[in-house]
Design a protein around this nucleic acid. Structure first.
Lengths: 223, 223
DNA sequence: AATAACTTGCTGGCCAGCAAGCAAGCCTAC
DNA sequence: GTAGGCTTGCTTGCTGGCCAGCAAGTTATT
């Protein structure tokens, strides 16, 4: 068998391997529960190499986050450009965007888990990161799509947050809350059904929200 | 100064204080990042007392989860009973339930964070816990409320999961995703606005979903 | 072309620090 | 005085950071 895998020295390759391994381990087990020894082993290098390249565990973690955010930001931009280029109706574009976002997150469980862990840890690192721009771009896109002016963009932000909530949640709670309320999310067909439900809900919601004009305060009928 | 606060021996009191402190610390910092020394200090007992009462760190954690779940299950039952007793229209009941659930979670950040951390850690402990019953009860309530029979209860489950997603997310991501997309959640007025949006979205969604009869497959207009 | 001087990728031993768990013992209420 | 509530001393295991060192290049000099 080919035991002669790849043993030539290659800093770029090692760095990338370490980043990959660290991203997976940090996402799966969390920062504290991941040792640099494990990262090194998973990356096919020695215990000391992660420290050699990244200085400290904290800096390695930071590097993992930076790379992940950069990837997401690029994807959001690409998706927005694609939506702008197409000449579909606003509702179809929205439906497509929601569907694409759902798929995007589903394909990147590491990213979702990393952010989730960050949120639980106080999110100190996220504040400085350039991630905000991706959200702002998405918000502008949705406001434009729905034809809302600045005064109403608060509603667009609320809607965007709802879309994110709906796409995000199944990825975290596929084995906790979802089965507890009778939603299976084991097979990909289950995820497809979930996605269709989310898209439908968002579309019906938009229809209702835009019908009820500027502010939607009077939709409330409770206490 | 009154250094003589409360020094009488009281096992029940100490147990409860340890559970309270552990719940807070586990929720805020996570399992790994919380030491039994910290739990003891926060509970006003010594380093060794948590171990004395609960045997091990893992068993203490388990006890924290059990107590939290029991509280939630009771709250769900109480809320359901209240809804059944009232004679409001289905939509009003749903709106009230969503609003109440939103408030319930907002008042229990520890619970939300504990479950979130469990979900990220593989959720081994949640499978056995009696938490499932709360979800099933809520599901039955919603199905009955919307007048869905068993064949359609899958849609009710999807809707329930959406409601939970929408109420859950702002609590986790008030300082991460929410500000990134332009939704402020700092003050309670911000949370009120968010709650109103969620209730509206759910109501509009229900209107759309129930209008489109048994299965809502054809609501899809994308790829 | 050959060799010496130097850089860079990577390893593994060492150490300080901290956490969990155990066990022996102290203190208080009965 | 004794049982149970509670503390404290200690062990053991593990982690991250530091560092010395080595080997595989790379550059400069002849």
């Amino acid at each position: 068998m080919a035991e002669r895998v790849e043993k030539e020295r290659n800093a770029a390759r090692s760095r990338a391997a370490i980043l990959d391994a660290a991203e997976r381990l940090f996402a799966e087990r969390g920062y504290d529960a991941t040792s640099l020894t494990e990262v090194g082993t998973a990356a096919g290098v020695s215990r000391g190499t992660p420290g050699y390249f990244f200085g400290s565990k904290a800096e390695l973690y930071r590097a993992v986050l930076d790379r992940a955010f950069a990837e997401v930001r690029d994807a959001v931009r690409a998706g927005r450009a694609r939506a702008l280029a197409s000449n579909q109706a606003p509702e179809a574009i929205l439906a497509g965007a929601v569907s694409d976002y759902f798929d995007f997150l589903t394909a990147r469980p590491n990213f979702v888990r990393l952010i989730e862990r960050e949120a639980l840890s106080g999110a100190g690192l996220l504040e400085g990161v350039s991630h905000l721009s991706a959200g702002q771009e998405a918000l502008a896109a949705i406001s434009a799509e729905l034809g809302l002016d600045d005064a109403e963009s608060g509603d667009a932000a609320q809607l965007l947050l709802s879309i994110i909530s709906l796409c995000w949640f199944p990825l975290i709670h596929a084995r906790t809350v979802a089965p507890a309320v009778g939603v299976e999310l084991e097979r990909s067909a289950d995820f497809e059904r979930r996605k269709r439900h989310v898209v439908s809900l968002v579309l019906y919601g938009i229809a209702g929200l835009t019908r009820t004009a500027p502010t939607l305060a009077e939709a409330e009928s409770h206490d």
